[in-house]
């Protein structure tokens, strides 16, 4: 059975590292992986995505509409943008903090992110909302939003990999002095719930 995970957000939020960790953890469990991500101009503040597909029956890295088991939304509007990709009864993890685009700032648009969260609540049964700004300030770093969301996704049990798998892979990538903070970020939602 294949698992399809779609990560989405705004360029610069650390989506690529999060998707690499999922892929690497799956590889370590001898699961075949395919993935695809946005590279190029859109990385500069545009909408970005990363598709990760895990399983033995894969022919393309791109997830079709209605095909994602899990969507990890790094930004509320971006999660809504990608909803057509969600499987029926799929899981969504979303950061509640909006990133307002420069165009919205200039046009005095009313976008606050709250309307997106309300829409997600109405349409997605399996929804986890994380206030990443609050989480990041509690953890003491603004650069760990990707780990907070990845940890929240792992905590739902919907990823084909475990929290421990992710930690093992993270330890191979990061400098030792950064590990404790990133582990804390991964486990943030567990501790909030517990």
């Amino acid at each position: 059975m294949n698992k399809n995970i779609l990560l989405c957000g705004v360029g610069g939020q650390g989506i690529v590292l999060a998707s690499k960790l999922i892929a690497q953890a799956a590889m370590e469990n001898s699961l075949p992986v395919m993935s695809a991500e946005t590279i190029g101009m859109a990385q500069k503040g545009g909408s970005v995505f990363s598709h990760v597909r895990i399983g033995s029956d894969l022919s393309t890295p791109m997830i079709p509409k209605g095909g994602a088991d899990v969507i990890i939304g790094f930004e509320p509007a971006e999660a809504v943008r990608m909803l057509p990709y969600l499987k029926k009864d799929g899981t969504v993890i979303v950061n509640s903090c909006p990133t307002k685009p420069v165009t919205a700032m200039l046009s005095a648009s009313s976008y606050t992110g709250k309307e997106m969260l309300a829409y997600l609540k109405k349409n997605v049964e399996r929804l986890t909302v994380v206030d990443c700004e609050r989480a990041a300030s509690e953890i003491g770093s603004l650069k760990v939003v990707n780990m907070i969301l990845l940890g929240a996704a792992a905590a739902t049990g919907e990823l084909p990999i475990s929290m421990a798998d992710i930690k093992t892979c993270l330890a191979k990538r990061l400098k030792p002095q950064l590990l404790e903070m990133n582990y804390k970020a991964l486990e943030y939602t567990l501790n909030v719930k517990g």
Binding site: V10, G45, G46, S47, V80, P101, V102, T103, Y111, M116
Partner: peptide, 17 residues
Amino acid sequence: DIPDYSDAPALPARPPV
């Protein structure tokens, strides 16, 4: 089987900057 999300709130445009 694909649900209809056309009633979603207006999404902000994000041209690269």
